[in-house]
Nucleic acid binder design. Structure first.
Length: 422
RNA sequence: CGGGGCAUAGCGCAGUCCGGUUAGCGCGCCUGCUUUGGGAGCAGGAAGUCGCAGGUUCAAAUCCUGCUGCCCCGACCA
């Protein structure tokens, strides 16, 4: 494997696939268009997922699971829906060695199977609203695939809600696109435009489709999350009605909304540079990499003792860190490797001094700078690592502001006016 | 589905035009010693159904036919 990635200015697409593979985020699966999400890439997805899941639950949603296989007749109940999805569906025709009486669709999305169940569960306005989400895989047979951005199978969440009025459904659809905006901007440092899709572009079966669109490094927009007001389309298709307070039968109003592993592709393109990934601290698998540098065995022991004192504090503060004390690779190799993987901050701790380097994040704006090396103190003197500084350091990594480095430099290295100006 | 490219060691490639020893090179991997603050050095070593199937030939990675897979660029999608 070559050491460097293709420069963005040379070939943006190749740069992207290089970074995905060399940062060990994902690899190609054996079947066409499939992707293996490797542990480092999956950790980013898990962080995004945990943030989203918490926000869904804070807004009253609950998780459930609906089946992967959907009878063909279900798919065909909503005319626009099947028209929109049929060409990109994978269909199971055989099972148990026999041809099936009715083909089973592998879910491209779950509106149909979920609404068939909602029909059983909704009888009166007292059953509403019904606010269910699921974290699952879906399959869409795409012509052209790219890791994370468009793969045959991908991971996502799909929320499916049922309401007693059009206004309430509309409010839900807008509420969820706002949550997606917050996840993109406040956690992934990825600015987005919130907008409504044209009739041609909207989801098949929706009344309105709202999306967040993120701007990538090649100046192309990436649709990064969608929220649909489905009106009564699926309720009518599956005959889901409820008895209102006024004792009248009415069709239920619905929404659905989702974000997928495409978000991981978005964050790569939004921030990465010619040295590899650059990850926002809030979703980075490791927010900090600690690289001890030693010459002798005694130095190594001493250094690791110091590192343990520091990490003891990080454990309390929930800082995600990794100590790279691998003896098989050189410090230089480690620097480049972790830069490829986009770890926000690096702490070099050696016989001479301790340095912190990394990227600067200013809120949702993806302003980033490789900071000049900041010397702090000599780590071989046990008292030099001021406890208060560690507290600041770890608290900043966890702050809601998303601007760890700026403040770290101000607090820790006051003499560097250039860094403060960042 | 159209256009282009590729398939040889784990990865990246050369060799193919013009058939001919034991199929090479770089990185990685294994062993040993020296190293370690920006991708370390030396020495030794392991590793290949040359994408698959036919054909031509004394002889095929190389020529012919068919097939398969993948990547990139376009139209569609989260």
């Amino acid at each position: 494997m070559s050491i460097k990635v293709t420069k963005r200015s040379e070939d943006y697409s190749r740069w992207y696939t290089d970074v995905v593979q060399k940062a060990e985020l994902a690899d190609y699966g054996p079947a066409k268009g499939t992707m293996v999400i490797r542990p480092y890439g999956y950790a980013i997805w898990e962080n995004i997922r945990n943030i989203a899941d918490r926000k869904f639950k804070e807004t009253g949603h609950v998780n459930a699971y609906f089946p992967l296989l959907i009878p063909e007749s279900f798919m065909k109940k909503e005319a626009e829906h099947i028209e929109g999805f049929a060409p990109e569906c994978a269909v199971v025709t055989h099972g148990g060695g026999k041809k099936l009486d009715e083909p089973l669709y592998i879910r491209p999305t779950s509106e149909t199977i979920i609404w068939s169940m909602y029909k059983k569960w909704i009888n009166s306005y007292r059953d509403l609203p019904l606010l269910i989400n699921q974290w699952v895989n879906v399959v869409r047979w795409e012509m052209r695939t790219r890791l994370f951005l468009r793969t045959t199978e991908f991971l996502w969440q799909e929320g499916h809600t049922a309401h007693s009025s059009y206004e309430e459904a509309e409010e839900e659809a807008r509420k969820m696109i706002e949550i997606y905006r917050q996840i993109a901007e406040d956690y992934m440092a990825m600015p987005v435009y919130v907008g409504k899709k044209t009739d041609a572009e909207k989801f098949a079966g929706a009344v309105y489709t709202y999306t967040i669109e993120a701007m990538m490094g090649d100046k192309k927009a990436l649709q990064s999350g969608t929220s649909h007001n489905l009106g009564q389309n699926f309720a009518k298709a599956f005959n889901v009605t409820f008895l209102s307070k006024e004792n009248k039968q009415e069709y239920v109003y619905a929404t659905s909304w989702g974000v997928s592993t495409r978000l991981v592709g978005g964050v790569i393109m939004a921030h990465g540079d010619d040295k590899g990934l650059i990850l926002p601290p809030k979703i980075a698998p490791y927010q900090l990499v600690i690289i001890p540098i030693w010459r002798t065995a005694e130095q190594k022991i001493l250094l690791l003792e110091e590192v343990a004192k520091i990490t003891h504090q990080f454990n309390k503060e929930d800082v995600r860190y990794i100590i790279d004390d691998n003896e098989q690779t050189s410090p230089g190799w480690k620097f480049n490797q972790w830069e490829m993987k986009g770890v926000p901050l690096r702490m070099e701790i050696g016989p001479k001094d301790l340095r912190i380097t990394g990227s600067c994040w200013c809120g949702a704006t993806p302003v980033k700078n490789n900071l000049s090396q900041q010397r702090i103190c000599s780590p071989l003197l046990p008292d030099c690592w001021k406890r208060s500084r560690i507290v600041c350091f770890s608290a900043l990594l966890n702050s809601e502001t998303g601007i760890p480095m700026k403040l770290i430099i101000m607090l820790i290295s006051k003499r560097s006016s250039k860094a403060v100006a960042l």
